[in-house]
Amino acid sequence: EEKKTKEAAGAHPLPRWALWFSKNDRSRAWRDSLQLITKFDTVEDFWAVYSNIKLASRLSTGCDYALFRDGIEPMWEDSMNKKGGRWLVCLARQQRHTDLDRLWLETLLCLIGENFAEHGPEVCGAVINIRTKRDKIAVWTREAENQEGVLHIGRIYKERLRLSSTAIIGYQAHVDTAVKSSFLPKNKFMV
């Protein structure tokens, strides 16, 4: 009902998205630090939220934002994520001040704009991790075995980020990432 009222007032509808925040803190489990900031379902409300939270580059080390479709929690264990994986963009430390905010905003716009065409429903959400060594941005999809969908999403995503043509981004299945290892998880796909 509220959504219909907003649309009647000229707002541009979106499927509902949820924005989450967490802060890695050794004193408690990651899950306990996860907080839902808000949900929104119009373009106008997206910008109201975006304008009122800190830019990712201003967050302190250990913090994450996550934007997920309403009903999907930003964790591997969620039934919509557990068979999925992520397109991962790792940034060099100095890029926090030159590229991070642009890349994260571009990621958000790809998601809420549903810019992955018929493979859009495969996208569950996106996560940004602010870390000492390297910040990371990832787009999570729900089915790591859906090669056609995963590759389509990866190609569009890389193009939208305007990464150099020599840059390579990798896709990792969550089942591989979840295994504790001293090695980086292997890339299932690359674009």
Binding site: A9, G10, H12, T42, V43, A48, L109, N115
Partner: peptide
Amino acid sequence: GKKQYDREFLLDFQFMPACI
């Protein structure tokens, strides 16, 4: 299907005062 918006369209709303 879900409604698609391109990036320029979305960016046009960034600094628009909230009217709702």
